[in-house]
Design a protein around this nucleic acid. Sequence first.
DNA 1: TCTATTTAGGTACTTAAATTCCTAAATAGA
DNA 2: TCTATTTAGGAATTTAAGTACCTAAATAGA
Lengths: 132, 132
Amino acid sequence: MSNLINISEAASLALHGLVLIAKNQPLRMNVKVLAEELNASQTHLAKVFQNLSKAGLVRSLRGPSGGFELNKSAEDITFLEIYEIIDSKIMLGECPLGKNHCVFQSCIFDNELNRISTDIYDTFKKMKLSDF
Amino acid sequence: MSNLINISEAASLALHGLVLIAKNQPLRMNVKVLAEELNASQTHLAKVFQNLSKAGLVRSLRGPSGGFELNKSAEDITFLEIYEIIDSKIMLGECPLGKNHCVFQSCIFDNELNRISTDIYDTFKKMKLSDF
DNA sequence: TCTATTTAGGTACTTAAATTCCTAAATAGA
DNA sequence: TCTATTTAGGAATTTAAGTACCTAAATAGA
């Protein structure tokens, strides 16, 4: 793997799927169609959207002609929000390696990792569904 | 997990261990002592240093009073080199999610991820063992 | 009302990466 | 030469993510 930035397949699916849904508004889209368009695993995508739905980002409707639609305006959905729902909440300012105790008094990374983490956070926050 | 930047425990152990060794020059240090000072898993650290040794970054000596020592000057060892030995070679310019094909013509991340990846790469490259 | 469709949710399986375990090989020192 | 120490290397285990499977619940449309 050569991913310097930690974004799971699931979070990527969420973003890409939501972009399609945003573009397709005001019509709903179901998992089958989304998976086909994204050339992705249908079951995985279904699980991801189940979580987005539980978190209130999308509304779901079952049955024929059912599917998912945005539950808020595309301008109000940032990738940060998506990321935190699917992957995990971002904690800035802590050790970027997740260590509580460190043998070195001053971080040997000299806050460079925190600088970059903040950059990533800000970038994720700026990325809105409506930009795509 | 809340690590935005993908640095494995192994790569972190490698960096922290090498810093200790650099500071302790010209004396060797063995895995047992290193693990104690870093408060880390001895077996894992051993495996990591086995790989650093195979890659030529450190020299090893077995037996009593054995251990590891740097195989090149601390100024010439960057965290980038350590990272690429332990985690993986960094490929810039490719899809930061590792996708070969994308349904969107232009990356929906609008090269922001590539910008950050390049920043990380440059930062890793600037970090030398002698800085610590 | 019945049926086909679609999401919900729990469980199980698969895979790759990370980590640990175990035995062999080397070597310093007694 | 013998023993204790230390790294080497392969195998095994653990863990987490991704994926699949199955049944239930909802609902639109016939």
